[in-house]
Amino acid sequence: MATNALNLPENEYLLPGNRACAGCSVGIVFRHLSKALEGKAIFVVPASCFTVLCGMYPTASVTVPVMNSVFPGTAACASGIAASLKKQGREDITVVAMAGDGGTADIGIQGLSGAAERNANVFFVCYDNEAYMNTGTQRSGLTPLGARTSTTPTLGKGQFPKDMPAIVEAHDVPYIATASPGYPGDLYDKVRKARAIFGTRYMHINAPCPAGWQFAPGQTVAMAKSAVETRAFILYEIENGKFRLTGRSLALAGKDKFPGISEFLRHQGRFSKLDEALAAQLQARVEERWRQAVARHIACEQQ
């Protein structure tokens, strides 16, 4: 049975009161991650929003061990911890590298690529809030086309984001998944699955950011759901090369009518000046990626 709000474990690893911004989705992500790992994890965190959430010396907001790392060093540090735990016979502990989109896809991509190629026993989680939010919403390699950021202030970003799960998949790792704080049960079940797998596991999480995307802090979950409903973000997993849609995205695969991408974008200030040509480009990309995902799901199902 899929996990939902009623059968989630009650243990909490995030203390009441933390330094994250109001409406931050990273708290929702961490809560369900840590529940699925039953706290038996070591988190490695580069400079990022999660660093802020975890608290400043000498207080902490989480009850799992956290090791801070230099910005590009997350995957390597996690690899080192994993190597040491192996040497000590403590491999029951999951080593989680938890980085933002910059720490994963930009400055962190070399270390992640190295770790993935070695199949280091690390669970790498990218919470993708689609810009350098912790430093004030500068453009990243995962910022969407057309989004205004503090370094694309008037015209918006001129390029599509990198397809990070596809980049990781090219490293032939055993498990890749996407997840959303709008669907925490799906996220939880994927972490449970990832936990039991040896090697480099990668999870890409859509992480709506009220401050950077410019929407009301109370709308975080609605925004995460809207990303999935409009198919701007697709829930799937790739287990040993086998692709399958999951959760809400799997349910949507049976439908033929969907809300347009503008339903998702129009609530976000960063897209408030998006012109029709760019909106059409974004919609076309959504359609193409959805077509590919559904086709791949069906092809893998028939194998």
């Binding site: 090791m67 995957a75 390597a76 540090c77 994993a82 190597a83 040491s84 190295g114």
Partner: peptide, 10 residues
Amino acid sequence: HSAMGVCIGA
């Protein structure tokens, strides 16, 4: 960079 990163973690 990663060599020292691994050493730091371990």
